[in-house]
């Protein structure tokens, strides 16, 4: 039990939060995605998504590009190399943890 709790504390906290985890998962599966797609895929509200994206950008995990498509603003998000590595590490760590728990269960 203690080992399992220790394992959890080793997880990257920034990614471990469910909303940010969802954002990172979506962005890890593509080169880039726009704000609308992230909204639909994660089910977050606009404000929530913006706040989480800002946190991830500040941590250097996500790159946010603002442009115009016609007359409309268009926000595109993508993972930075650092973000991709961080998510890959998180995924490996947590799949190993889940496997371990399954074995014990």
């Amino acid at each position: 039990m203690a080992d399992e709790l220790k394992e959890i504390t080793n997880f990257d906290r920034l990614i471990h939060a469910p909303s940010r985890l969802a954002i990172m998962a979506v962005l890890s599966a593509c080169e880039s995605a726009d704000f609308t797609f992230l909204l639909n895929a994660t089910g977050l509200s606009k404000g929530n998504l913006s706040a989480h994206l800002s946190k991830l950008r500040d941590a250097g995990y996500v790159r946010i590009t603002k442009s115009f498509r016609g007359n409309y603003p268009h926000t595109t998000c993508s993972l930075t190399t650092e973000g991709r590595h961080a998510f890959d590490d998180y995924r490996k760590q947590y799949l190993a943890f889940a496997k371990q728990l399954q074995k014990q269960g």
Binding site: A29, C30, E31, S32, A33, D34, F35, T36, F37, L38, L39, N40, A41, H74, T76, S78
Partner: peptide, 10 residues
């Protein structure tokens, strides 16, 4: 993709 959003694939 007008309403569902834009994705650039891997």
């Amino acid at each position: 993709w007008q309403k569902s959003g834009w994705v650039k694939p891997l």
